[in-house]
Design a protein around this nucleic acid. Sequence first.
DNA 1: CGGAATCCCATCTGATACTG
DNA 2: CAGTATCAGATGGGATTCCG
Lengths: 123, 123
Amino acid sequence: MHGRDCPSRTVIEVLANKWALYVLGAIRRYERPMRFSELRRLLDGITQKMFTQTLRSLERDGLIRRDVYPTVPPKVEYGLTPLGVDVGWLTNAVAEWAVENVDQIFAARDAYDEKAIETTKQL
Amino acid sequence: MHGRDCPSRTVIEVLANKWALYVLGAIRRYERPMRFSELRRLLDGITQKMFTQTLRSLERDGLIRRDVYPTVPPKVEYGLTPLGVDVGWLTNAVAEWAVENVDQIFAARDAYDEKAIETTKQL
DNA sequence: CGGAATCCCATCTGATACTG
DNA sequence: CAGTATCAGATGGGATTCCG
């Protein structure tokens, strides 16, 4: 595996984050830059703190672009960079896989939890 | 986006975890079941607690299989289930993407951080 | 060897308040 | 509108100790 000091780990750790996946997925889905509030509404459940934090993290890594229009009221749009489009293909594949296999995984969970209960009863 | 109560979110959140990616990647790389310590050594840096926790989580979701040999000393092997092989293809793609693009991302980080420093100097 | 249990600190969550 | 600041509470991760 990548050693603990391998730089690629820092990249993986940005992507191995549910909010990063959701943000990339949401921007990607609409294929156009989106405004702060518009995007946040799509995410359903994210706190404003984590939302901003995730946007900054993705922007720092060059996966999303932040365009500020100095108008009143202020307008800020977030869009994918070419690099973001590239990785978005992957993160979306993960999300789609989850949707396609959610039933099978829930069945596995039920079986696992059921077995755990029986084992407890033995005591 | 998937609403906050969408079941698929629980699946995504298991996969959107660095240790889950590493564990799946490590078992997958060797294409054979691996023992607890053997596997853990490959992960380099994971604590025993997170390691066990991640294994349980993946086992519960039916992505990995846990085979116990009631010998002395005990021997336990972990291998991918068919479902685990399936998703492992995706998680590995994410890890590979990170390795391939690490230079570009580090360059973006440097530029971003540099700009932040200059902005600070303005004050 | 392959864990479970415990303690402790870091991070996340959620609510609320404030600002250019 | 698009943020930043703060604070209490819940959860997650790391280090250490102990056990069949």
